[in-house]
Design a protein around this nucleic acid. Structure first.
Lengths: 343, 343
DNA sequence: TTTTTTTCTTTACGCGCGAAAACTTTTACG
DNA sequence: CGTAAAAGTTTTCGCGCGTAAAGAAAAAAA
């Protein structure tokens, strides 16, 4: 079996005993042909493993089956995880996912969008870099290609935004931390690449104000996506300089927290809940490695499943309707407190 | 500017005042036309941002500019890192990288290869799953598409194998560990998904034999790619059951080691070099997070740069020559001892 | 059985480009 | 300045498929 070499749909049609246009119909929607015809085609398919040429298909179709997925930094396990879920959902929906990473660089981000534009995707799921993004380029892209914006909101980017409810998530952590111990200081980057950080800072400030505490924010120097490094270096400095006005530190994200934990460990500060512990540390994101830090990291998890599912569903609805959304919908999914040993 | 809408190369040629075949030549190699002509085209390019239709290009070229990159599990930062480097080198070489993850599943791996086959890539850089891979499917693919195998060697897969020198890398760590303390036990998975693990075990056994020590291997139960989880769960069990016949543990890879460190921490065992430490732990791979574990992880690093560069160079040489390699070359790059606090 | 509807076949065109052949123009060089 | 070489132009073909129209055949409904 599978010996016969087929060069094109014409030859395959001849083999199956069906006309070429009917074969074409079959490959576009296998239920659009009569069962008897379908069986003829599928019997032929068993003995020659023919597949229509993807370039010829896409050249003639106005709408391809490609769906772009762009994330800011794929080497970050957080994005790897969310991208993985989205990718699988896109495949399930019968589309071809094209996964692209912007490598933390706006030039790559623009390059990715241009690259996507050239393959005429049915739609694109875009998690932008954020602050560093070339807004004009992104808006231009979104006006040409149906785009769903996720993770980091850029006003006007895409037909909808699906994201994490940073305010609520920060709030439940604040509630937990203040209820069980000292009100936390907030440890973040001075110039965070991701806009979620700003929402988290605001939520921290609001929360502290409402609870009648004085907020303390430590802003780590450093640019880019090497957050563990920044958390480690600046965390060590902050601890050594006694800048930390509480025994509880709420890090803006888990990667900073991982670095901070390493700094605390190196300085011999025991982190955790017990009486013999000097400090509590919490993070935000439920990073895949957070279960395995020392101590395990208390954090707030994104609703990964809901965000991935909803992003893809929104995209598919957009594709099926063939229209642009009337108004830009923003959907936020609540975070979940993940209590572990560090706080 | 950029107002003029161009639908195809014909229209663009008219705009630039050059014939279409010459424009075509320009886009294939911008140095292949006379400087004066080139300037004409590039001036036209400035006022209409035309790009040749990628589907039409690829339909007619025997050789596309696509290069596939397949890794077994992109959510693993190790692969994310190596993929990132390779991707950038491929872009630099003027090709379009198509990054695909097999998600730890041989079905996805075969699907990725089929998907790649359909876009007629100039070449493919393949890091196979290993043990779980569908060898027959991979060999079939490699006979059709110029493939360079990297990271995990599968005999006969591709024109060349570029990888890490597991034997040498294990050896330098063994030398270090035995010179500075007790000979280590070896902690690994009973059924590792990646074939590198087997080479590391063999190297450990050889090394212990040569040094005149009795080898001890602890084989963790568990399947799949959740190595931190396996390292944590089985590591805790091994420590609790006092299966560890040395104060030094050499983990088969860093992800296992990260789990193992978490287990030791939870059990109150101090890991590190100092006199007050009860155990030394070393890993293998120099995982991106290894600098931030508690304590920081002593490990053996792959020569990431050399492996990425050499894989891409080998691929490009293959593409340029247009031929298949006469014999399957195997290139291994030595590892480097990374001394940190854990051992 | 006849009529209606659905499905299939035949024929034809076009997508946007690569490639090749034959001819013309420009450049390089003695 | 003349000539060969290099580069550009024109023309034509074909890639493999989507798609549309018109008619034939098959299935479903009357």
């Amino acid at each position: 079996m599978e010996q016969i070499k087929i060069r094109n749909m014409e030859e395959f049609a001849a083999l199956s005993g069906v006309s070429r246009p009917t074969v074409s119909k079959y490959f576009n929607d296998r239920t659009s042909v009569r069962p008897a015809t379908r069986e003829k085609i599928e019997r032929a398919l068993e003995q020659c493993d023919y597949r229509p040429n993807i370039f010829a298909i896409n050249q003639n179709r106005k709408l391809t089956k490609n769906v772009g997925i762009v994330v800011p930094f794929l080497a970050d396990p957080f994005f790897a995880e969310i991208a993985r879920r989205i990718e699988m959902l896109v495949i399930e929906a019968g589309f071809r996912p094209i996964l692209l990473s912007s490598h933390g660089d706006p030039a790559y981000e623009v390059g990715n969008l241009e690259s996507l534009r050239s393959i005429k995707p049915a739609g694109v799921l875009l998690a932008p870099l954020g602050r560093a993004s070339d807004r004009a380029a992104i808006e231009r892209f979104c006006s040409d290609v149906p785009t769903v914006n996720f993770d980091a909101n850029i006003d006007g980017a895409g037909e909808a935004f699906i994201g994490h409810n940073n305010a609520q998530a920060t709030e439940i952590m604040m509630e937990y931390l203040t209820r069980t111990g000292e009100p936390p200081v907030f440890f973040e980057m001075r110039t965070p690449p991701n806009p979620n950080a700003n929402k988290r800072r605001s939520a921290y400030l609001e929360s502290m104000a409402r609870l009648g505490h004085t907020p303390h924010i430590i802003q780590a120097e450093g640019e880019g996506w090497e957050m563990e490094e920044i958390g480690f270096r600046e965390g060590r400095k902050a601890i050594a300089d006694k800048q930390i006005a509480s025994n509880t530190v709420f890090c803006s994200n888990d990667r900073l927290a991982i670095g901070f934990l390493a700094a605390a460990y190196e300085l011999g500060i025991k982190v955790g809940l017990g009486a013999q512990c000097a400090m509590r540390v919490a993070g935000h994101d439920n990073h895949p490695i957070a279960r395995f830090t020392c101590p395990t990291l208390t954090t707030v998890s994104h609703n990964y499943t809901a965000i991935a599912t909803n992003s893809v569903e929104t995209m598919m609805a957009l594709i099926e309707s063939g229209e642009r959304a009337a108004d830009r919908e923003i959907k936020l999914f609540d975070g979940e407190l993940i209590m572990r040993a560090s706080a």
